[in-house]
Design a protein around this nucleic acid. Sequence first.
DNA 1: TCTGGGGTCCTAGGACCC
DNA 2: TCTGGGGTCCTAGGACCC
Length: 419
Amino acid sequence: MFALVDCNNFYASCERVFRPDLIGKPIVVLSNNDGCVIARSNEAKTIGVPMGAPAFKHEGLFKEHNIQVFSANFALYGDMSQRVMSILGEYSPEMEIYSIDEAFLKLEGFEKFNLQEYGQQIQCKVVKWTGIPISVGIAPTKALAKVANRIAKKFPDKTNSVYLIDTEEKRIKALKWLKIEDVWGIGWQHAKRLKAIKVNSAFDFIQLNDAWVKKNMSIVGLRLKHDLQGIPTLDLETLQPKKNIATTRSFEKNYTELEQLKERITTFAVSCAEKLRKQNSCCNTIMVFIHTNELREELPQYSRNIVVKLPFPTNSNIELAKFANDALEKIFKKGFYYKKAGVIVMDFSPKNIKQLKLFENCNPKHVPLMQAIDKINASFGQQKIKLASQDLKRVWKMKQERLSPRYTTKLDEIITIHL
DNA sequence: TCTGGGGTCCTAGGACCC
DNA sequence: TCTGGGGTCCTAGGACCC
């Protein structure tokens, strides 16, 4: 059996842990730049705040219902996630951390256990130790565990937030209940096509023949079908080093000058380099992109990306910044209002294996230099040491008007209790 | 005049997830 | 005035190899 543990309204719940006065009140969390709604408490969902809603369009609704609005505080959410995951890890020798707020546990050899009770134990401990409410779905396959989890979340009172699919009857009933667009792995496009041929539920989906599914939805769709039929097809996935790493941002205002974009691209490249060093990789290829605001149709639009093969693998701030800036110059055009840019690094090789080239090579001096920079930035706070071409005065700031303190990762911002 | 068979690698685009 | 960020996998088709 597999268990899928999912934190309820994770970001909103994290905020509420440190603001118990907000229990029972509506909360939303916004994306970077205070752009869109990316998390909602149940109360906010009930009021009708849509997922992904642009904040500026809903200010009225927020005020009217006294909805508490938070800027995204990823330092807090990341740390809370680790706490939850470390507890979950105690409940099975095999765990897959699927996302910041979800994990699969493999329950092999648990035949003698009462899994309903076991799920309840997990649920109680996570709430008690972290304050984060969770839902648990348990079933013979991963896709069915997802379904079970959905039921637990939808009917918390009836299920005590733990639902078990352990009989054929329950499986069929659950699949008939689940709408096709809510099936894990069925996105917007496939849902549309499936509904067009009268496939409206997960149950309808598993009635399709394999050949059709394979032809129209590829092997991925077919695996999903089998998993939903109760044939274990998807197994836990072990943590793999990343294959791509990206740092991309929207700007709080439009940029028009090459120099402004250069500063951003340099900072993004440095951030990618840091992430590369964390997983002991070097990259062989980078992509740089810039584009104008697609939502402002009245303005002239421009959007381009460029992929550059590097002459040698590197994870040096200095080298990546240089290659990224050279790339930027190739695609930059004057006369546009740029709203977003990013750097993506790919095609990795392990940092130790380097093909030595006769004429071009990474600068070996950068290795100890980067180690020193990482060490200093680790002890004195992020970005204490920067390249001169980065924004030294921190002119660039994300819009974060309603940021909560980093309660758990910054001593100055630790929670205070008034007795 | 006739024009095989079997591969690999790369890329762009499409689909999906949180 | 203001609309997020970061990933994965699969397939088809073209270039190229022998």
